[in-house]
Amino acid sequence: MTLHQTSFCFICCHLTSGQKEGDELRRNADVMEILRKTWFPRVQGSRDEKSPQTILDHDRIIWLGDLNYRIALSYRSAKDLVEARNWGALLANDQLRIEQRSGRVFDGWNEGRIYFPPTYKYSNNSDRYACNDMHPKEKKRTPAWCDRILWYGRGLHQMSYVRGESRFSDHRPVYSIFIAEVESINRCRIKKNTSCSSRIEVEELLPYLH
């Protein structure tokens, strides 16, 4: 979408699942394929001849979904850290953070501070991780922050990054609030407005009804 002279792109995806060693590389490959193969056609009649054609051509980008990156620890070690609410030690072994630091995926992207418990895997309709309810012979799923929100580009300021407590899935949803700067041309000069100084009603983004 384009708001005044600023383009936005939102990507919601579900990357490759699995917690075997090497599965994180398959998720990295998914991200690269999405970036490489996603193209946007030029809008006919658009006054902007340089409208974005790729994801990274946009000014502000938000990427969210079940990214499926896991915790690179044994089930028992991760479970003990979750029970101790030691998020720092868990995040030090978070595959997404590790892959970002190495420059293999989402290089230059941002993610907010995580102060909430891992979002996967829960027993349906409960607040218990599924690993606590599994039969001893079943494969245990190590708790992990599978559900993430990242952003790219200047002019995005994250105000909150939290998880919801809906119980209808084996995941807990996450959500975030951003302030976004947009550029608007006014009297031949470009001014930057934030949501604090310029409020845009939802109706302005919808087509007129007749």
Rank of each mutant, 00 (worst) to 15 (best):
H58G: 02
R70L: 07
E165G: 10
Y152K: 05
R97D: 13
A180I: 02
L90K: 01
L64Q: 07
A78H: 02
G18K: 11
A72C: 02
S160C: 14
R172H: 08
G22V: 01
I61L: 08
L73G: 05
S198E: 07
T194H: 03
H4I: 00
F40L: 07
R148Y: 13
Q5K: 09
S17A: 15
R36Y: 13
R47A: 12
E181T: 06
I55T: 06
C12S: 12
P173H: 05
R76N: 06
T38S: 12
S7M: 00
N125E: 15
T194N: 07
L3A: 04
S176D: 09
Q44M: 12
L3D: 10
I190A: 13
F40W: 08
S184I: 15
T119M: 01
G88T: 15
W87A: 08
E99L: 14
A144Y: 03
S198L: 06
D147V: 10
N132W: 14
I200M: 12
L35R: 04
R85S: 15
A180H: 09
L35W: 14
I98W: 02
Y175G: 11
D147L: 08
N86S: 13
M32V: 01
L67I: 09
H171P: 03
R42S: 13
A78F: 04
S126T: 15
I190S: 14
R128D: 14
K192P: 09
C12T: 10
A78S: 09
I98D: 04
L156G: 05
S198V: 05
N110C: 08
R104P: 02
F8T: 07
S7N: 03
P118V: 00
D66I: 03
Y152H: 12
D94V: 10
S160R: 06
K20L: 11
D147C: 04
R113A: 14
T2W: 04
K192V: 15
R26L: 12
R154V: 10
Y161K: 00
H157S: 01
C13E: 14
S102T: 06
D57V: 01
I55E: 06
E49F: 07
R60T: 09
R104L: 13
N124T: 03
Y161I: 00
L81S: 03
N186F: 08
S184R: 12
L56C: 05
N193G: 08
C13V: 09
M159Y: 05
A78T: 05
I11A: 01
Q158M: 10
L35S: 05
R97V: 13
Q5M: 09
H14S: 13
M134P: 00
V202K: 02
G45K: 04
V82C: 14
Y69V: 00
R26P: 00
Q53S: 14
Y175M: 08
R70F: 05
W63A: 02
E203W: 08
L67T: 08
S74F: 02
R163N: 15
E138W: 05
R85Y: 04
Q53F: 11
R189Q: 15
D133H: 13
S102V: 01
K37A: 11
K140M: 13
K191S: 10
C13H: 02
F40N: 13
